[in-house]
C-alpha cells in the first residue's frame, strides 16, 4: 500500500510537470496554430538561465530564479514569437514546424557548447524531507511539486475564465477574425499566449531540474512526453493537456514499477497510438471539422 501511494504521488508529481509543458503546447496551437517542437528544449533552457545568473552574475538563488523567469519570458516568449513564429507562419504551418525542430537542435547544442555537456546540480526550492502520512513515508518534494503545479493550473484557468483579458484570449483562440472585428487586440492576445507558455515552461523547468539535474539533453524526453500528453488529452483543450500529462506521468511510473523498466518509454507511445486510432480528438478534446 505504501509503495502504491509513493508511486502514485511520484507519478502525479511528474505528471503535473508534464502537464505544464503540455498546456503550453495546446495554448500555442489554439491561439496561433503554432506547433512548437522545441517545447522540450523550452523546458530545459530556463534552468540554465538560472545557473548562468548564479555563476556569471553572482546572484543568490531566489534572485537568479526571478532573472531566469524574466529571461525566459523575453527569449522563449517575445523573441520566439517575433523572430521565429511571425516570419514563418506566413508560409504555413509546415515551415514553422520545421523551424521549431531546427530551433530545438540549436538550443540544445548551444547549451552544450556554451555552458556544459555534463549534468549540473540545480538547487531545490523546498527542503528535501519526508512526511509520514498514516504511517507511510511520503516525499515532501512530490507534494510540493503537486501543489505548485495545481496552483499554476488553477491560476491559469481562473485567468482564462474569469478575467477580461483571459476571455479575450479565448475569443482569439476560437475565432481570430471575429475577435478582430469585435475590437479585441488579437496580436496582443497571441503575444500573451506566448508569454504564458514561456512562464509555464520556466516553472516546469524549475520544478523538474532539481530531480533530473539540469542537462542539455533533458528536452528530448520532456518534449516528446509533452507532445504525447497533449495529443492523448486533447490538443484543443487545456484540461485535456492536464489530464494527458497526469495520465502519462502515472502510467510511466506504474509500468516501470510493476512491469518493466526497459519498456516504460514505449507505453506512452502505445497510448498515443491507441488514442489516435480510437479517439483522435483526444480523451477530452473536441472533434474539429476542416473546410476543404
Amino acid at each position: 500500500m505504501a509503495d502504491f501511494l509513493q508511486l502514485a504521488l511520484s507519478g502525479v508529481a511528474t505528471g503535473g510537470i508534464y502537464a505544464l509543458a503540455a498546456i503550453g503546447f495546446v495554448l500555442l496551437w489554439q491561439t496561433s496554430q503554432t506547433i512548437n517542437f522545441a517545447q522540450g528544449e523550452f523546458v530545459m533552457l530556463p534552468a540554465f538561465f538560472v545557473l548562468a545568473a548564479m555563476k556569471f552574475g553572482g546572484l543568490s538563488f531566489p534572485m537568479a530564479l526571478l532573472v531566469g523567469l524574466l529571461v525566459a519570458l523575453l527569449v522563449l516568449g517575445l523573441l520566439f514569437k517575433r523572430l521565429v513564429v511571425d516570419p514563418m507562419l506566413r508560409h504555413g504551418v509546415l515551415p514553422l514546424v520545421i523551424s521549431t525542430l531546427a530551433l530545438a537542435i540549436f538550443l540544445k547544442e548551444s547549451v552544450k557548447e556554451f555552458y556544459a555537456a555534463e549534468a549540473q546540480a540545480f538547487p531545490a526550492v523546498w527542503a528535501t524531507t519526508d512526511l509520514s502520512i498514516g504511517g507511510t513515508v511520503v516525499s515532501a518534494q512530490s507534494l510540493v511539486i503537486i501543489a505548485v503545479a495545481v496552483s499554476a493550473v488553477a491560476l491559469l484557468q481562473y485567468f482564462l475564465g474569469a478575467t477580461r483579458t483571459g476571455r479575450q484570449m479565448q475569443a482569439t483562440a476560437q475565432n481570430p477574425a471575429l475577435a478582430r472585428i469585435l475590437g479585441i487586440p488579437v496580436e496582443r492576445m497571441i503575444l500573451y499566449t506566448f508569454l504564458i507558455n514561456a512562464a509555464l515552461v520556466a516553472l516546469a523547468s524549475f520544478l523538474i531540474s532539481p530531480i533530473y539535474l539540469a542537462k542539455f539533453t533533458n528536452g528530448e524526453t520532456l518534449g516528446l512526453v509533452a507532445f504525447v500528453a497533449a495529443i492523448v488529452g486533447g490538443f484543443n483543450q487545456v484540461r485535456g493537456a492536464i489530464l494527458g500529462g497526469l495520465l502519462v506521468g502515472v502510467i510511466d511510473n506504474f509500468v516501470a514499477a510493476y512491469w518493466s523498466s526497459q519498456y516504460r518509454a514505449a507505453i506512452p507511445l502505445f497510448l498515443l497510438i491507441a488514442v489516435i486510432l480510437w479517439r483522435p480528438q483526444g480523451l477530452l478534446g473536441r472533434a474539429e471539422e476542416r473546410t476543404v
Binding site: 508511486l7 539533453t217 523498466s261
Partner: peptide, 20 residues
C-alpha cells in the same frame, strides 16, 4: 535485482522497488 537504463532521469519506480 533492478536494472535501469543509461541516461535515465526518473528513478522513482526503481527506488520504490528497492525499498519494497
Amino acid at each position: 535485482d533492478v536494472s535501469t537504463e543509461s541516461g535515465q532521469v526518473d528513478f522513482a519506480a526503481d527506488i520504490v522497488k528497492v525499498k519494497a
